[in-house]
Nucleic acid binder design. Structure first.
Lengths: 219, 219
DNA sequence: ATTACTATATTACGAGTAC
DNA sequence: TGTACTCGTAATATAGTAA
């Protein structure tokens, strides 16, 4: 993670411009001996995290970028626990059912999503405003369903995110070779959603994704 | 700082609810052996950072608060480099000059702010909107001018922040026993600001404070 | 299967000190 | 002054393995 010493340098503003900072000050700041601080600074310089000249220390651009990326990761985990989409049921192409019947997919969905998918997918058209959320969702680590080849036809991998759709369990899937644009989400579920939720084209649905929310395999 | 292992648990959502995570997974996640992960988890539990039961791990509320506070510190360092106040010159009480003539203060200002203060202070009245900024400023580590006793009169310590006022160097000071409320900032400078900037009561001034901006002592 | 102990190996630390 | 060597010791890691 972000080391004590980089944290200290950050607090000293070493990301803005080179700062006059002695090894003794660093030692004091992070609670180690001067010798250790010296050694660590040498190490950081070797790694390209800091640059030193004339008794001044600066964090490199690389180091700053790394800090920012780590920060983003932490913030992403900490807040915004659920992502919510509102959308309308869209007519499907009938292709989904064929895919959802493939033994390999069924097996993987069952073990990784903890449900046996109904053979069919529900297409949901989301509003312009929710496209950004879609991108946020795609920054999350997906549950990966591997691709395979059967009968000299190859089936691509599928990224999945567990969700609840109007209260029922399911998953948003992103097939590697998707037929849909950014406006459409493809949903699978253990249930026949159209029947169970009495949906028809244009019906409003609410989809909620809880980040970091693995399923519990049945014993 | 935030340890690798806590970072990993955060990513797994262990701050939301207890998660099924094995020592092996943690080991894999942070790049150490299973044994080391086990030992570290035991350590973290002892420190009260995590709780474990039935193979599940959760971050404690304490740990989460700690992460948030560290995060705040980093963000505070990273962004919002300068704090800007807009205000109007207010009439002073004449007290400032007396203080600014005290040898001890002059000496400390000179060594810590790198300028010899003009014997007088400028009071600037800031708008309601800037009061929040004032609080942000006060979260920054000040340059501390120590108090002293002279002629059986005691002079309190002064917190100072280097600033530029309408382009000239100076410092915002917060005397321990301030006579001013939240609406007023007290400014010192090597210059007679009223004369040099042609200021009178009610004149508009702009004050900029750069965070983490120590002065360079003249050789 | 997972966890955590013991023993051994490795790495990191600070004291002393030269530059 | 401040920095960074060497070197003996302390801390921390992994391997092996029992529970």
């Amino acid at each position: 993670m972000i080391s004590d010493i980089v944290f200290f340098l950050l607090k000293k503003g070493a990301h803005l411009e080179p700062r006059r900072i002695t090894t003794g000050e660093v030692a004091e700041g992070i609670g180690v001996s001067q010798q250790t601080a010296s050694r660590k600074l040498i190490q950081l310089e070797k790694e390209g995290q800091i640059s030193r000249s004339q008794g001044r220390i600066a964090l490199t651009q690389n180091a700053i970028l790394e800090i920012k990326s780590k920060l983003k990761e932490i913030l992403n985990s900490l807040d915004g626990t659920t992502i919510t989409f509102k959308g309308k049921v869209a007519s499907g192409l009938g292709e989904g059912a064929y895919y959802m019947r493939q033994k390999h997919y069924v097996k993987e969905f069952n073990s990784k999503l903890c449900f046996k998918p109904f053979p069919g997918t529900l297409n949901v058209s989301i509003g312009e405003d929710d496209i950004e959320k879609r991108l946020v969702l795609r920054e999350q680590k997906p549950i990966v369903i591997s691709g395979f080849t059967a009968k000299s036809r190859s089936f691509g991998r599928i990224d999945a995110y567990r969700c609840s759709i109007s209260g029922l369990p399911g998953a948003i899937i992103f097939p590697e070779r998707s037929l849909h644009g950014l406006q459409t989400l493809e949903i699978i579920s253990p249930f026949n959603l159209r029947k169970k939720l009495l949906l028809s084209d244009g019906s409003d649905v609410k989809i909620e994704v809880v980040k970091n929310n693995p399923c519990e395999p049945k014993a």
